[in-house]
Design a protein around this nucleic acid. Sequence first.
DNA 1: ATTGGAATATCCCAAAATGGGATAATCCGA
DNA 2: TCGGATTATCCCATTTTGGGATATTCCAAT
Lengths: 75, 75
Amino acid sequence: MPGSLGTARYNRFVELLVDSRKKGGFTQEQVATTLRKPQSFVAKYERGERRLDVVEFVDICRAISINPANILKKL
Amino acid sequence: MPGSLGTARYNRFVELLVDSRKKGGFTQEQVATTLRKPQSFVAKYERGERRLDVVEFVDICRAISINPANILKKL
DNA sequence: ATTGGAATATCCCAAAATGGGATAATCCGA
DNA sequence: TCGGATTATCCCATTTTGGGATATTCCAAT
């Protein structure tokens, strides 16, 4: 397992991301389109199967209209 | 190249991390020790040869006593 | 309870990235 | 210029990734 994948903290991170997307009323497909990536990409990182680097994280936060800092605070 | 590695934005991200470390007066060795990783690990991500996931980023920010949000703002 | 379309998860595997100890190269103050 | 401190590079077996296609799960309407 690379980096933080699989750790409780990483899982929590992903959970926060998923919850944020849902609260914003976005589907994986919509986020994927904004990111110019396939839906399977979103499914993968939301399931913790693939790590997100910091730049990708910022882009995703923008795609779902949330402030990245609000998630970092909880890690 | 995976994720955002190699992009101008990622390079800037790493540059901000390096500058922050130096301003704080930390060596790669010190950061590595705090992270319980080898110095080559720090050298690698600072050179943009390895991606940092979000949890790792937060840990590094703590190791060099900076606020993660201050870096995210600039991406 | 059934149905059907939307949403999400899983497959596959070639291609690409990672880990980290050892060693080389560079930096820099005296 | 020298020498210790700091950072970069090597190597390569092992692990991860990309993404189209397909399967599965969800859920609202009837």
